[in-house]
Design a protein around this nucleic acid. Structure first.
Length: 410
RNA sequence: GCGAUCGUAGCUCAGUUGGUUAGAGCGCCGGUUUGUGGUACCGGAGGUCGCGGGUUCGAACCCCGUCGAUCGCCCCA
C-alpha cells in the first residue's frame, strides 16, 4: 500500500467554520472595495524572480532564503509571489495602466513565503490587497486608510488601532537613517546580538526590537520629525488631518518603519490594542493590516517614477478575529423515509432551489433515523416523505417563505 | 536557521512506578424504543499507540534518531 501523502509544511486545508470565516472576510472586502470604487484585478501567482528580487533589494536574505523560487524548463528563474505589490507594479508598467492613473485596484489570493510556520503564519497564506497607483497626493493615503478602517469595522473587529508614521521623503529618510546609525553605533556593545547585526544590515529595524537591552536606547533615539523636510511635514499633516476629517482614529507610532528603501512618507499598521481579545487571538503575529507609500518602487523596477500607496491584510488573521461563522442552516430539508419516493424528493428540491431557497435531502442510512438527522441540522423547514404517500411538514414559523415552494404539501 | 512543548480510533482525549486481549465521549453503521418524532437503550465497524532503531524477560510509557504538528526567536516584502 502506498503511503498517504502529507500536505506540504505550512499549507492548510481550510474547512467548516474556518472556511466560512474566510469567505466572510472576502465577501466583506469585495463589498467595501466597491463602495470606495476600487477596481478588481487578477495577477499571476508567479513572476520572473527579478520582479521580486529587485523590488525587495538583493541585499537582504529575503531573496535567497524566504522565497519559493525555481527554474522553469527554459532555465529561467521564477518565483511564487511573496507579495502583491511588486507584481501589480509590473502589471501597471507592462500594460500601460498609466492611462488609468490614478488607478485604484483591489485583489486577493494566495501568497508564498518560505518561512517556519507559526500562529497566523503559513507558507501559503492569503491576503486581500488595495493599492492606489499614480497618485502623489496625500488624499490617496487617506482614502486608502478610510477603506481599511471601514473594512475592519464591517468585519466586526474591535480593539484594533491604526498606528501611523512617516518616513519622510527620500532625503529626510536618509538623514534620519544616518542619525540612527550614529546613535546606535555609539552604544553598539550594549545592544543585543541581533541588533548589533541589524546595525549593519537594517538599522531601522532596531527600533522595533523585542529585546529589553535595546529598548532604552530606542527610547532616546533620534526621531524622524527632526529630519523632515517642509514638504514631507506638510504631506504628513495632510494625511493626519484628512484621517481626522474622515473619522479614522489613529495613533502616532514613531518606531514603525519599513526596511526597504523605496518606501516614502506614510507607513501604517493596524495593530490590536495591548491586552485586547484580538491581541490574544493573534499571538506574536500582531499586525493584521499593513502598508505604506512606495513612491520609489516603480523606478527600482526600471519604470518611470510613479507614486503609489497600498496595503495588504492576511485573510487568515482577519478570519481569526471575526468570530465563529458556522455553516448556515438550510431553508429546507427533504427527508425521504420511504426509498420509493426519492424521485419525488428531487422534484421538490428542484422547485425550492429554483425559487432561491437552500435545500438538501436526507435519504441515507436507516430510514427510521433520517428524520432525526434532519432535526439535528436545524433547517427552517423539514418536509418528510413517509410510507404510503403520507408526509409531514414541520417548522417554527408559519410565515416562512420557503413554504411557498412546497405548497403541495402544506 | 535556533529553541520549547507535543504526536494513542474519523474528532477530543484517558491510559496508573514499563506488566498479559489498548479505553471513554462524540461521530459513523445496524437494531430496539418513540411515531410529528431533536429521547433512551443495545450492538457493530474503526488503532501495527507518527516512523525507525535501542534498553528490557516484557515498551503506548524509558533512551537515541527521524518525520510531522504547535508556540516562540530570527525574518517580516
Amino acid at each position: 500500500m502506498a503511503k498517504t501523502p502529507q500536505a506540504i509544511r505550512g499549507t492548510q486545508d481550510i474547512f467548516g467554520a474556518d472556511a466560512e470565516a474566510f469567505a466572510f472576510v472576502l465577501e466583506t472586502f469585495e463589498r467595501v472595495r466597491k463602495l470606495y470604487r476600487f477596481r478588481r484585478a487578477e495577477m499571476p501567482v508567479f513572476e520572473k524572480t527579478e520582479v521580486f528580487a529587485r523590488s525587495i533589494g538583493e541585499t537582504t536574505d529575503i531573496v535567497s532564503k524566504e522565497m519559493y523560487s525555481f527554474e522553469d524548463r527554459g532555465g529561467e528563474s521564477l518565483t511564487l509571489r511573496p507579495e502583491f505589490t511588486a507584481g501589480i507594479a509590473r502589471a501597471f508598467m507592462s500594460n500601460g495602466w498609466q492611462q488609468h492613473a490614478p488607478l485604484k485596484l483591489a485583489t486577493h489570493g494566495p501568497l508564498f513565503r518560505y518561512e517556519r510556520p507559526q500562529k497566523g503564519r503559513y507558507r501559503q497564506f492569503h491576503q486581500i490587497d488595495a493599492e492606489i497607483l499614480g497618485a502623489a497626493e496625500p488624499q490617496a493615503d487617506v482614502e486608502l486608510l478610510a477603506m481599511a478602517d471601514q473594512l475592519l469595522k464591517e468585519l466586526g473587529i474591535k480593539g484594533v488601532t491604526l498606528h501611523l508614521n512617516t518616513l519622510g521623503d527620500g532625503d529626510s529618510r536618509e538623514a534620519w537613517r544616518a542619525a540612527l546609525v550614529d546613535h546606535f553605533r555609539a552604544v553598539k556593545s550594549e545592544l543585543s546580538e541581533d541588533s548589533q547585526e541589524r546595525l549593519e544590515k537594517n538599522p531601522l529595524r532596531i527600533l522595533d526590537s523585542k529585546d529589553r537591552r535595546d529598548q532604552k536606547f530606542v527610547a532616546d533615539a533620534p526621531k524622524i520629525d527632526q529630519f523632515l523636510s517642509d514638504d514631507a511635514r506638510a504631506f504628513f499633516d495632510a494625511v493626519t488631518s484628512g484621517l481626522d476629517a474622515a473619522g479614522v482614529k489613529w495613533t502616532r507610532a514613531e518606531s514603525l518603519v519599513r526596511g526597504l528603501d523605496y518606501y516614502r512618507h506614510t507607513a501604517f499598521e493596524f495593530i490590536p490594542d495591548e491586552g485586547s481579545e484580538a491581541a490574544s487571538k493573534l499571538g506574536s503575529q500582531s499586525t493584521i493590516l499593513g502598508g505604506g507609500r512606495y513612491d520609489g518602487l516603480m523606478e527600482s523596477l526600471g519604470g518611470a517614477p510613479t507614486p503609489a500607496v497600498g496595503w495588504a491584510a492576511g485573510i487568515e488573521r482577519l478570519a481569526m478575529l471575526v468570530g465563529e461563522k458556522s455553516d448556515p442552516a438550510s431553508d429546507l430539508i427533504v427527508v425521504v423515509e420511504d426509498d420509493d419516493r426519492i424521485a419525488e424528493a428531487f422534484g421538490v428540491l428542484k422547485r425550492a432551489r429554483s425559487e432561491g431557497f437552500t435545500a438538501e435531502m436526507i435519504s441515507g442510512g436507516s430510514p427510521r433515523k433520517r428524520y432525526d438527522k434532519a432535526v439535528k441540522r436545524a433547517p427552517k423547514v423539514i418536509l418528510s416523505l413517509q410510507r404510503d404517500m403520507g408526509h409531514s411538514v414541520s417548522h417554527d414559523n408559519l410565515d416562512e417563505p420557503v413554504l411557498s415552494a412546497i405548497t403541495a404539501y402544506s
